[in-house]
Write a protein that binds this DNA or RNA. Sequence first.
DNA 1: TTTGTTGCAAAACATTTGCACCCTG
DNA 2: CAGGGTGCAAATGTTTTGCAACAAA
Lengths: 169, 169
Amino acid sequence: MINENNLPHLPFRESVNPHIERIVQRESYTELQLKNMIRDMGLKVTQQRLAILRALNEGRVHVTVQEVFEVVSQTHSDVGFATVYRFLKKLKIKQHVTEVRMGGGAARYELASKTHHDHLTCVGCGLIIEFEDAEIETKQNVVAEKFGFNLTHHVHELYGVCNRCQKNP
Amino acid sequence: MINENNLPHLPFRESVNPHIERIVQRESYTELQLKNMIRDMGLKVTQQRLAILRALNEGRVHVTVQEVFEVVSQTHSDVGFATVYRFLKKLKIKQHVTEVRMGGGAARYELASKTHHDHLTCVGCGLIIEFEDAEIETKQNVVAEKFGFNLTHHVHELYGVCNRCQKNP
DNA sequence: TTTGTTGCAAAACATTTGCACCCTG
DNA sequence: CAGGGTGCAAATGTTTTGCAACAAA
């Protein structure tokens, strides 16, 4: 099966990620930092893994496997999804990427930033705003403590209608 | 393909949902309320839809389509997943059920309760505790307002290691 | 009787896995 | 050159859809 871009066998649909507004800034990693990230995971530094990390580092945030695959394909004509899936899973386990499942489609991934943040998503146009709120984070710990939990991570997604979509429904 | 329960063609794996501790109580709906729920959505009241609602109303919380299907199959020998999927989607749109996607597998659903709550999930054993926190809810509205959003709903999942799993790692 | 709903099977979508070959350390 | 990593294709898992038969209003 060949799609309109003439890429080999893409079983996924073109994914939609209209526009992203980044509120919380994350500084990009250097090439060396990316290599060390792989090494520190006890893995071999391959061209494919570097290319995947570069895609996550430079490209837009909240990408699907499909999108990573497309970017990486530009420089490596014959990567497979399998590699992207496999590496992304390892990165997820090591908490280097965060998996976000908004709505029903494929999972979206983003390279972890030092400052944690959450998401505010417009159900109308898909705009994603990142926010952080120290008070909420604190309250979470209180809740966890109350039930004897040792918190590892969390997902906090707010959904609503953005300003622009309120005016142009 | 026949599985060990002799049910017709079950493409899903047996799902794991070890134990649920319900902190926030939700009163069950009456049979009449369930019927009205369907009617109010402008849909026909069929036996299948009633059976699906009953399963959500009486059974355990956070069920997968597979689990709903199994329960409904006990009284309706020939429901299809399609029906379960279709109706669940409608319920989701009308906000009568909440879809939760913990981890990677199939989506889990629960009948909406009047009092909103969020989830605290143990990454060790899968224990799910429901909690509610008015202060956090308030803070969310502040955040939304700050970015000009009109909030529709949200997902707030805390993950950690529960008491028991901390002692028996 | 009219129209929405269902079950079935197949398609579509998303992710994982087995295996022979390849490349990093 | 040893062992992990890769691409491919096939398997597996999850959800959606087309259509003829059917049931609720």
